[in-house]
């Protein structure tokens, strides 16, 4: 609608393009990865309201809890890590529906599957872009919400760190569920049924890290496990999600 602006944003797509010199181009996978990330970021930029909806959902769920259990600060302080984490879990699950459905509806998903690159890599790129627009804002917003629950500075820092390590894992696991439920009726509810049980370890160690700090113990062990889960998810989830996409597209 605003040609000059689009023109400017569109330039984002150009610089990382790798020249096609030979059949086996070493930088081709990186270029493809960057291309998908840039494309999805650009699309998210043009649909900012979708991103805002997820964030708003996160904030509103967290603010509902004091209304439900009462404004007693001691109670709220002990609940805070769990509340923020559960809200983050629900918010990132809510956003999952959009991960593949748009590409599925307009046929670009088929073209991604047919691109001469490992599909797992492209799925990884999509999850990365998805995390940047839906996961990272949660991480940045969490301390603000934590303040409303009277968490101290150290707890807030650990809360951010645990979300930083945990939310990418949520996106990666969620991608498998999103790919499996692609195009099904009632996909949204089904997706939550499939994905939420698998989120439990991340929830336990994420919220546990903050609680451990609040209790005067170190959060090192919790954060290490979160990191380990992330590494596992990075290695296996894109591959599984790619297989799920192929199954769903048949």
């Amino acid at each position: 609608m605003q040609p000059p602006l689009l023109e400017k944003e569109g330039n984002l797509l150009l610089p990382f393009r790798a020249p096609r010199t030979a059949q086996m181009n070493a930088s081709a996978p990186i270029a493809a990865f960057a291309c998908v990330v840039r494309r999805d970021l650009l699309l998210a930029m043009r649909r900012r309201s979708d991103v805002a909806t997820t964030l708003f959902f996160f904030v509103i769920v967290v603010s509902l809890f004091p209304l439900g259990v009462g404004p007693e600060m001691n109670l709220l302080r002990t609940m805070a890590p769990g509340v923020v984490w559960v809200a983050a879990l629900l918010a990132s699950m809510l956003a999952l529906n959009r991960l593949f459905s748009g590409d599925y509806a307009d046929g670009t998903l088929e073209q991604l599957v047919l691109a001469p690159h490992p599909l797992g890599l492209l799925v990884g790129a999509k999850v990365a872009a998805h995390w940047l627009v839906t996961g990272l804002p949660l991480v940045l917003l969490a301390p603000l919400l934590g303040l409303a629950f009277d968490l101290n500075a150290k707890s807030l820092g650990i809360l951010m760190l645990s979300l930083l390590l945990g939310t990418p894992t949520l996106g990666l696991i969620g991608a498998i569920g999103a790919a499996l439920t692609l195009g099904l009726r009632g996909a949204g509810v089904l997706l939550s049924l499939l994905v939420l049980p698998l989120y439990i370890p991340v929830l336990i160690f994420g919220a546990g890290a903050v609680e451990a700090v609040a209790a005067g113990l170190g959060a090192g062990a919790h954060l290490s496990v979160l990191g380990a889960l992330l590494v596992l998810a990075v290695f296996f989830a894109p591959w599984a999600a790619a297989l799920a996409l192929r199954i769903s597209l048949e």
């Binding site: 569109g10 797509l13 393009r17 096609r20 081709a28 493809a32 649909r47 307009d106 046929g107 991604l112």
Partner: peptide, 26 residues
Amino acid sequence: YLGHQNAIKDDLTATENLLVSETLAE
């Protein structure tokens, strides 16, 4: 493969659509 659907993103311009699809196809 040219599918039944156009495989273009509504929110991207025609040029951007081509840049993305052809970069992916090397």
